[in-house]
Design a protein around this nucleic acid. Structure first.
Lengths: 253, 253
DNA sequence: CGTTACTTTGCAAAAGTTGGCAAACAAAAT
DNA sequence: ATTTTGTTTGCCAACTTTTGCAAAGTAACG
């Protein structure tokens, strides 16, 4: 049994259950307790899981790494992506922040042409490159778990540009806390992008409804449209309209 | 059993499972452990699979779309990469510019840890991310054909950092024109990186010998080491030593 | 002959195992 | 509640096995 196989199995177990025990893995993998411990230690260092006494559990800090998180509500995200892509003309300039919803949009935009794109997400850059006439990477320190650039240096760079559109994603959308996020730095980035664009757009697929992140999102500029895949409940709708934002539902287009 | 058959079988196994072990293959192919190892080694060099301890796995990222020239002299580039990787300690800081030689180095560095990396190449960033404690992307306009950031804005960013090592690649190395490049912008970037590092290193695999690009490379800072895979001819050696640079040949290490 | 392809051998490094012990935890007893 | 007791777990060190790598050897082929 190769080390890589064991690692794959451990992570697979964690996709199904929230936790795995070292004891169980020892039997199922047919290796010693210490080996399983070392595997978990290694995976924990790579942020693939979290080490707990006697076993391991899924990552819970902030958001899940992009690979697993992006499995959530794929249809919803791509519905939003198709909807928005049809509204963005060839040759438009746009800010794209990081996140799986935005990545879905980038994929939907691959057949556009002449776009001018500013992004801090390396995956987004990779995907959208062919559709651009100008692609600008926001420079700075990279958050390796997200493969996205964050931090003050990145903010300074963003401040140097303006664009027709800014498309950013929300960490959570709830009636009481309204828009929230899981990272201070990502939140600042998103807010600045919105401010620098003529048409600021915030994505919140239905997975985000009722989710409250630990960072409150500073009120976005007023023309910001909040785009969802399906209609949220009345409480959320009220929260949005009371604050003066426009709600846009992709499935009703 | 022909070598080509074995290769086909190995790749077929990998289509079904995510990993194969050398042990299993030795039995199924009826050849020795070493032969299987060499098969895997060969396939890995051609980016058909990824070598892991005890076996092989599928290629993970969508790294396949590489520019035509990166297929040239794969062995040479990886020889240089292995040689340099052994000289770079864990925790070192380094500039990495864009180019297939540097990408090969990045791959060779994936098992290092604690690196601090500044790069303008998106593929390099993707490959080396796991080995870094800090990864900084140089921001600016992306040259889509290279997936690398170039331009004045990028130069300004690089100027803000210093590092232990700078590893950049040469476009050409000839007796008369000496170091040359094919892009003005890339050339400036490489030169600046070399100037900002304590140990500047220039890569020129044997494919570059005798090649003259249309941009003359401004004389690099003096401690710059020029690293090649095999010994260049006497004329080139003379050109290097006359100008006061040190030549380092990976195959003679 | 030399060349090519594979095997064998030897050794160092890495991965994995085993066993011991102390800390953490849980249950029972005071 | 607090202590006691027993079990589990984490961690370390010594040991064994596996693997990678290089060098030398062997066999087939032109």
């Amino acid at each position: 049994m190769l080390a890589a196989e064991r690692h794959a199995i451990i992570l697979e177990r964690l996709d199904q259950k929230p936790t795995v025990s070292i004891r169980a893995l020892t039997e199922q993998l047919g290796v010693s307790r210490e080996t399983v411990r070392k595997d978990i230690e290694l995976l924990a260092q790579h942020n693939k899981l979290e080490k707990i006494r006697g076993g391991a559990t899924k990552i819970r800090t902030s958001e899940l790494p992009i690979t697993s998180r992006s499995k959530l509500n794929i249809q919803g995200k791509s519905l939003i992506a198709q909807y928005l892509a049809s509204q963005i003309p060839n040759g438009a300039s746009l800010f794209l922040d990081n996140g799986s919803s935005v990545l879905a949009l980038a994929k939907a935009l691959t057949h556009h042409s002449g776009l001018i794109v500013y992004t801090n997400d390396l995956k987004v850059a990779e995907v959208i490159a062919q559709a651009t006439v100008e692609l600008v990477i926001i420079g700075g320190k990279v958050d390796v778990t997200e493969m996205a650039v964050q931090g003050v240096e990145a903010l300074e760079s963003v401040a140097r540009y303006r664009a027709d559109f800014a498309v950013v994603s929300a960490g959570g959308l709830s009636p009481s806390a309204f828009l929230t996020d899981f990272s201070r730095e990502a939140s600042s980035m998103r807010h600045l992008m919105l401010s620098q664009a003529q048409h600021p757009i915030m994505l919140a697929d239905s997975e985000k409804f009722g989710v409250v992140g630990h960072v409150v999102f500073k009120a976005p500029p007023k023309p910001t449209r909040i785009v969802t895949d399906i209609a949220p409940d009345d409480e959320i709708r009220r929260a949005i309209s009371q604050r003066g934002y426009r709600l846009d539902i992709a499935s009703e287009a």
